[in-house]
């Protein structure tokens, strides 16, 4: 099954709450009142912890504190350990925009998310489902260039 980006984020956060609750709590604390717009090749997810738990907002609010843009390819490279977060930012694979204090909060939330992701038993399968799309696309591109 192929997962869209918002569905993957939603499932990943739910799994973190269930399987690595301390990481989910730390992620919420780091986000605080911040709303983050995450855009992966046009697929948008709006993440907020304002309700006390991390969740996707059902519709896009007019304002958000931080905007994070990236690609499936960059997420795949990060997951394989080919890039560090700093590498991804300096190479343009990840773009972050927002006030410095808000960016620091989002970075802390991201680290908490990752600490949960490496501990949650079911996370690898969810990530694999999400990245399958990219693998299919890479195969398609490779065939097209043969």
């Amino acid at each position: 099954m192929l997962l869209t980006f918002p569905v993957w984020v939603e499932r990943a956060v739910l799994r973190l709450e269930r399987e690595a609750p301390f990481a989910a709590t730390a992620m919420c604390e780091a986000l605080g009142e911040l709303t983050v717009l995450i855009d992966v090749e046009g697929e948008r997810a709006m993440l907020s912890a304002a309700s006390g738990r991390c969740a996707l907002l059902p519709s896009a609010p007019a304002a958000f504190a931080v905007e994070l843009r990236t690609t499936r390819r960059a997420i795949a490279a990060l997951a394989r350990g080919e890039l560090s977060i700093l590498d991804a930012i300096t190479s343009g694979g990840v773009t972050l925009r927002g006030p410095v204090a808000a960016l620091a909060g989002v970075y802390d939330a991201l680290i908490a998310f990752l600490e949960g992701a490496v501990r949650a038993p079911s996370f690898a399968d969810t990530l694999d489902q999400f990245l399958r799309w990219q693998r299919l696309r890479d195969r398609h591109v490779a065939r097209g260039t043969e």
């Binding site: 394989r80 080919e82 560090s84 990752l114 600490e115």
Partner: peptide, 9 residues
């Protein structure tokens, strides 16, 4: 594991 570079760079 290489993915830990993300957490411990």
């Amino acid at each position: 594991p290489r993915v830990m570079r993300l957490i411990c760079p």
